[in-house]
Write a protein that binds this DNA or RNA. Structure first.
Lengths: 152, 152
DNA sequence: CATAATCGACAGGTAGCTTGTCCATGGCGC
DNA sequence: GCGCCATGGACAAGCTACCTGTCGATTATG
């Protein structure tokens, strides 16, 4: 993380806008990863957000997690296995379905979620302090508009 | 490309902002790839932008390309090899340095660059038409500001 | 009760990167 | 003009983050 990045992206410069978006996104992303690493969670990688984000205190199956994160069960299973091996989540048999295993965050996993979530308002505040709340709102709206334009 | 995307990204939701940035970026990116595919360049992938973007009519070594794109020589060499096999670039020995080979776009490669470059103003126009020039300008500035905030 | 759907495991493959090693060639100090 | 280090590129190997396909076990459904 926070490795030297390609200076640019997008298939042969599709607007500097795209480049700016990518860079801003990567910068924000790295910030979370760096913070986690500082707190001793250096083995958490970007892809694992797909797990942490959709975890549930009540326990969730890999299949459901995969569906929520829009990746295949296999991909999600691998991420979960990795996190289980490092103590971030546990997998216990579902008492109501003997095929299923429920994925739950451990104490360590909850810590990761807490750190990441604490960073959100902190970042928002820093950004808002510089840009102003209305511009942040406009930014959010415009990004969504652009996505719609490009998707249609 | 334009496959189903993870609904979200960022290590455990670092601001919806980051998610919006990523999605907007991916949407714009896919647009270029789709356009290229329509014109018969379906074998050009996103990673190849790193080559096309830094190609030079006068010929450029893989080492230089790698440095410009901020990836290793090996990674760049692979991309170049792929594009050479499909006729997008040629590699000829550098007359002035018998170690070096110069990578140059072929006619096909120039076509790809042209298509991608033509799309830039087209997209900008569509976006500007909806948002207005001043908001696009603000967007660009704000994205850069955010990157700076996150990088510092 | 038989059949279909679902859960998770296993096998295997791909893209896009990385490090490390090696050789041929080139530039440089002496 | 010789020795030495730097550089360009090739080869090997490995990793992450995905994918498809298959299968046995189990559960839900007609």
């Amino acid at each position: 993380m926070s490795r030297s990045r390609p200076v640019t992206a997008g298939s042969a410069r599709p607007t500097n806008l795209a480049v700016s978006m990518r860079e801003a996104f990567l910068a924000l992303n790295d910030l979370v990863l760096v913070r986690l690493a500082e707190r001793g969670h250096g083995d958490v990688r970007a892809a694992h957000s797909a797990v942490f984000q959709y975890l549930d205190e009540t326990g969730t199956t890999v299949s459901v997690l995969a569906e929520r994160a829009q990746i295949t069960k296999q991909a999600m299973a691998e991420l979960v296995l990795y996190l289980e091996a490092r103590g971030y989540v546990s997998r216990e048999p579902d008492p109501h379905d003997r095929r299923a295993k429920l994925v739950r965050p451990t104490e360590l996993g909850r810590e990761v979620v807490a750190i990441a979530q604490a960073l959100v308002p902190q970042l928002e505040d820093r950004i808002t302090a510089v840009l102003g709340a209305d511009r942040v709102e406009a930014l959010r709206a415009d990004l969504d508009t652009i996505r719609e334009i490009a998707t249609s």
